[in-house]
Amino acid sequence: MTRAEEQRDAGLLDAFAGHLALQRGLSEHTVRAYCGDVLTLLALLPHGPDGNAPADLGALTLATLRRWLAQESGRGLARATLARRVAAVRCFTAWAQRTGRIATDPGGRLLSPGPDATVPQVLTAEEAAAVMDTAREQAAAAGTPAARARATRDWAVLELLYATGVRVAELVGADVGDVNLAERLLRVLGKGDKERMVPFGRPASDAVEQWLAARHHLLPQQTSDPGALFLGARGGRLGARQVRDLVHRSTALAGVRDLAPHGLRHSVATHLLDGGSDLRSVQEVLGHASLSTTQRYTHVSTERLRSAFTQAHPRA
């Protein structure tokens, strides 16, 4: 899709984005993703005789939506991605009807593909420990104060991600005042602006304490402190992309399987369940709106239990 084609529907998408952010309370990342999803649908609609007018929403029918979904499915997208795109389009058509842009809502009858049943790769407890230990050693071996501050920050980021299972957006959005080292609690703002307190252990507490002591080394002179828990380039708030790069780099350095930050989140859920935590507790820690989302991890633990039983039981 060309830039000109995007611009012709910019006004409509801006209005939809405002609804998502202000009335639905969705995060900036989700708003951007939903608008991108809807843009792929608008590309199928007529745009006036010269092709430069905004999309004709009157042409939105269930047949159009099914044709759009078939086109998206043909691109080889994961079922979870397709399910999100359907959710975005349903939200869009419902909003368009409520605001008088269309007479009926065809999205209400659009069936969504079920999400993938598989859970992404996770680290074993030993692999996770290797990542944390390597990061701690890197921090201890760093030379200059600034280099030591960066390495300590990276160590603290990894420890908190693994200790709490928070989303990357939740971690980078946290401020210094959101950490309670005395009670080892992290306050985060999750999806739908829902606030929750997440506990963490002593290793993460030690890493964060050392980072906070070195944090000022990443604040350039004459730069106001943004108050962010984790600082990035030029003393600003650490970005989500930097955290993703950090996790990939750290797993490689520790010699374990490559993993994205969300993989650490999956690892936390799996390790909690393996350790005996109940589903409700894991749901609270991860901030899942639905228990069914948390239940995706139970089969991983069940498979490990079955494997251990097969190896150990004399009548397996």
Results as ranks from 00 to 15, higher is better:
173 G>K: 13
78 A>D: 08
309 F>T: 03
11 G>E: 13
300 V>P: 01
126 E>H: 11
254 A>E: 00
197 M>Q: 13
307 S>N: 11
10 A>E: 15
98 R>I: 07
247 V>Y: 00
309 F>A: 08
266 H>S: 04
198 V>E: 05
285 V>Y: 08
43 A>N: 09
107 G>C: 09
42 L>D: 04
23 Q>W: 08
146 A>M: 11
304 R>Y: 05
86 V>W: 00
89 V>D: 04
268 V>A: 13
262 H>M: 13
19 H>Q: 12
118 T>C: 00
227 G>N: 09
127 E>Q: 15
132 M>V: 10
47 H>E: 10
313 H>T: 00
184 R>L: 06
193 D>I: 03
244 R>G: 14
195 E>K: 08
215 R>Y: 00
271 H>C: 11
162 Y>V: 12
255 G>M: 07
97 Q>C: 13
106 P>R: 08
272 L>F: 02
270 T>Q: 04
128 A>Q: 09
124 T>H: 03
193 D>N: 15
37 D>W: 03
239 G>P: 06
239 G>Y: 14
163 A>S: 09
20 L>T: 02
71 Q>N: 06
82 L>D: 01
90 R>S: 05
228 A>S: 15
91 C>K: 06
217 H>P: 07
76 G>N: 09
51 G>H: 06
238 L>Y: 03
147 A>L: 15
29 H>A: 14
141 A>F: 00
220 P>S: 14
225 D>A: 12
89 V>T: 12
302 T>D: 08
72 E>R: 14
98 R>W: 05
133 D>G: 14
120 P>W: 03
315 R>P: 09
52 N>V: 09
8 R>M: 06
117 A>G: 14
297 Y>M: 10
134 T>Q: 10
178 D>L: 05
177 G>F: 05
255 G>R: 07
224 S>Y: 04
308 A>F: 05
70 A>D: 11
232 G>N: 14
